[in-house]
Structures are given as structure tokens and as C-alpha cells.
Write a protein that binds this DNA or RNA. Structure first.
Lengths: 123, 123, 123, 123
DNA sequence: GTGGTCTAGACCACT
DNA sequence: GTGGTCTAGACCACG
């Protein structure tokens, strides 16, 4: 469990944690019943507030990815990997959509946007 | 000067204004020394806060696209249109790149990313 | 909007707020597009931390009861009152179930539990 | 002495132990001066932490149901069984009352609450 | 003005 | 030790 936190990024710290844990789950690095680092441990490790880690874990729990047991710890739940993939695709869809919208707002033609996209994807 | 504002969009209102003015400059609808609508006029027209319009104009000024003269108004500055287009493309490129990176981090295949992209572009 | 907060109760403050807002929604005291008191206003009014109010609003948002607009405020969402009623019934069911379980653990006969229940309900 | 522990229940483990010992006392399965299993023995038997068993015994001692003798063990104290039953009924009454109050706060009719109650009791 | 995030520390309940 | 809640105050982004 090595987390990389960028405190100066626009992405909230707790969301960065959430994202990385989701990726670990999808990649099989975290399996059902695995225990996550304790809130305090992780907060010390990442040199951030315990509340920030807690918020990340709460978010994961409300989405059903982990189960928190009072006094024991936070465990990876039985996850439907397909569901997770769908969710991640939705997120990607949102990002792509926003980018395309921006391009159009800039008056850039769809063909030019596509060309740019292919250039990045293949480059 | 017809602006279209979507208050329920994810994109901040001031950014929508900035974007549309940039497009007008690039397309030649706004030329050097043209005067922009006053902050108050535009805020009434778009039914938004004057502070929001002010923020848009400030942003444009800090990027060098307009010049505000105290007590007179806000004027279009001398700009290199080609440079502006390049800049906008760079911005779009950055957004697309970030989206693609996120997709790959999520382990989504390039073909699936492309498929998603085309779906959004054509949908 | 009068909230009653019991800081010495076992029920978390943020949950007390959530409950009372849900009741207001169900009773029609809060309708779609009504705005909730701002996080800071309510925190001052109830003499509690702004974060506690925020947590309550976040919880309501994740359940779909309110919609938060950055820089503007928190609004009542279009709610499915029937769904809300179902949810509340589930909560009541859980509480009754726990009480019955406790009675049985204590070796109290179902008939005695029922008698007690009727006594309270009618008294 | 056969205890049934449900670690995934909402009820704290130590409370489950306390409850079951109280029932044994009331039913006469445990009488004055009977010795309880040692903290270590019970913790191994139930596969739970010794601290949890200790907490249960402490709780019983503070309520006057058992007496712990250092270096010897934990013994059942002289208790008034009728008083114990009354106490347990009071506790149950409180829980049922709270549930009914919550139901009414939610605007659920008494008839519906009763129906729900019967459903759970009989189901 | 509004919400969004984060901190550093506190106290409590459960194991 | 663990998680659960709360505080008082900070800084940022949006309107």
C-alpha cells in the first residue's frame, strides 16, 4: 500500500486516496477482507489529518467498497468488479465530455478535436 | 455580443464568459480597441452577479486579452489570434491527455477509450 | 426551520439534523427548491461546529434529498416522498427488531413483549 | 455455560455476554457463589479478545451481579431475581418507547407501527 | 456572502 | 490499539 499524495493538486486529498484504493481493488492488489491501514496510521504516513483519511474511508464505505468495523478496522468489501469498471467508465466519460465541450466552446471543429485526441492516444 | 450562460453547468459562470469572449476575439467578432459591455450592463443582461462579470474581465486582463481603463470601460487588447488558437489547443490537449491518462490508470483499453470518445463526440 | 439539538444524546448531532430535515421534507414543511440555512448560519444558530452541519448536509446530498450549489447554498431536491416513507419505515423496523431481540435475549416471552408494546402504544 | 456470540451483530460483544449472564442468573442457571469461566478461558472459547470479556465482567460487577476476587475468579453475587426481571423489562420498555416515538416523529400511524411490530415478532 | 477542504487536537465507545 | 464524533479556526473557489 503505497499512496502518492499531491497536496498542491486541485484534486482533494481524500479523493486522491479514494481513487488509488479503487484502482488497487480493481487491479486485485486489494482483495475481499483485506484490511486497510488504520486511519491514524495512514494519516501519519501521509502526513495529513486523520479526518481527511476518515473522509476517504467514509466515502468508500458509502459506495460499498469497504466495510468499517468499530474498534477493529476498515476492510475491503466483497466488490462487484464489473460495477466498479462501469463506474470508472462513467467517470472517464464525464472527463472526456468536459474536454469536448471545452473544445467546442473554443470554436474548434469536431474533426480537429478528434485529430488531437488520436494524436495523444497514439503518441 | 450574445452570451449563453448555463448556470447549472459544472463550468463556473465566469469561465463561460471568458471562453466566449476568447472565441469572439479569435473569430474576429471582437477586434482591437472594441469596447466590452460594462460590468453592470452585462450582469443585468445575463441576470448574474456583477462580481462574476468583474471576475471574468479581470481574468481576461491578467491574460492580456483586454485592458480596463478606470472610469471608461474594458477594451480588447492587441492580440495575436494565431497564438490564441494555439493556446486554446494546448489547453484542450492537456484536458484530453489527463482524461486518457485516467482511463489508462483505471486499466481501460485504448480501444474502449476511443469508442467512448467517439460516442460522446457523435452523440 | 427550528431545530432541536440534544448534545448529550447518544445520537450524533449531524444525524439529529439529518432526521429533522427528513421529517420536514416528508411533512411538506420543506419543498423542492427551498433553500436550507447556510452551513455557517445554522452552525451559529445551533452553537455547533460548521463541519457538523456540513456533514449533515453532505449526508442528505448523498442520499439525494438536497442539492448543494457551490457559492450559492443547499437546496431541497425533487424528492420521492414514497421512497422517503419506505426508508423511514425500514429504520423503524430495525429499531423494533433490535428491541424485540433484546427482549428475547432477556428471556422475556413474546406475549410479554407484545403486552408491553401495546401498553406503551396505547398509554 | 454456552454463550452465543454474533460478531457481526450491531450489539457490542461485551453486551451480548452481559445479557446472557443476566439471563442465566434470572433463570437460575447461575446461582450465588457460582464461579464464572475465567477471562482467558472464555476469551479462547469465544475466540474474542480477553479485554472484551473483562469489560463484560467489569460491567456486571459495577451493576452488582458478580464479585471479582483478585487471583481467584469471578463469582455470582447474591441477587434479587425479581428485581433483575423488572430492570430488564424497564430497559426493553425504554427501547420500545424510543422506537414508537421515532415512528410517530416520522408521522407513521400507530396502526402501521403495530402492524410492523407484529410482522417482526411473528416473522 | 456561499460551499469545499484541511488541520490539530480532543473525548468517547469498542476490541 | 481501533473507529466515531466534534471543535475552532484556517484558506480556497465561486457568486
Amino acid at each position: 500500500m503505497n499512496f502518492i499524495i499531491n497536496t498542491s493538486s486541485m484534486i482533494p486529498i481524500y479523493e486522491q486516496i479514494v481513487d488509488q484504493i479503487k484502482v488497487c481493488i480493481r487491479d486485485g492488489k486489494l482483495k475481499e477482507n483485506d484490511i486497510l491501514p488504520s486511519v491514524r496510521t495512514l494519516s501519519k504516513e501521509l502526513k495529513i489529518s486523520a479526518l481527511t483519511v476518515k473522509k476517504a474511508y467514509d466515502s468508500l464505505e458509502s459506495e460499498g467498497f469497504v466495510i468499517t468495523v468499530h474498534g477493529k478496522g476498515t476492510y475491503i468489501a466483497a466488490t462487484n468488479k464489473e460495477l466498479l469498471l462501469e463506474e470508472q467508465k462513467k467517470e472517464l466519460e464525464k472527463d472526456l465530455d468536459l474536454a469536448i465541450q471545452k473544445g467546442r466552446r473554443y470554436g474548434i471543429h469536431d474533426d480537429d478535436i478528434r485529430e488531437l485526441f488520436e494524436l495523444i492516444l497514439e503518441g
